[in-house]
């Protein structure tokens, strides 16, 4: 007998490329879950990775940065928060969202 595979229909589930047990530093929800305001995880509630390598739910970090007291610093390490450029460009949802 000779068997050759002609066509392969694979199924994959995507998730954020983060360690499994890590949580967003602001809302303490898992990265794969939503920020505290969203209802559905996934594209609607993306992550944002800073240059300091701290990542948060986009909605979480935005509402943090909007506060006066935050002074546009990462809440984890107090460095000025900038999203990783190359990612900001490739991620369709967050091209221009880096706070300037």
């Amino acid at each position: 007998m000779k068997v050759t595979i002609k066509e392969w229909n694979a199924v994959a589930a995507w998730r954020w490329d983060m360690p499994d047990d890590d949580v967003c530093g602001i809302c303490r929800n898992p990265y794969d879950s939503t920020c505290s305001k969203c209802k559905y995880p996934g594209d609607d509630c993306p992550l944002l990775l800073g240059e300091c390598n701290h990542s948060f739910h986009m909605h979480c970090i935005f509402s943090w940065l909007r506060q006066e007291a935050a002074q546009e610093k990462c809440p984890m390490c107090r460095q000025p928060f900038k999203s990783k450029n190359q990612e900001a460009e490739t991620q369709d949802a967050t091209p221009n969202t880096s706070p300037a």
Partner: peptide
């Protein structure tokens, strides 16, 4: 091989 992939959003 003719590959087709369905990528799912896990939560849904």
């Amino acid at each position: 091989i003719d590959l087709t992939v369905n990528v799912l959003s896990a939560s849904c």
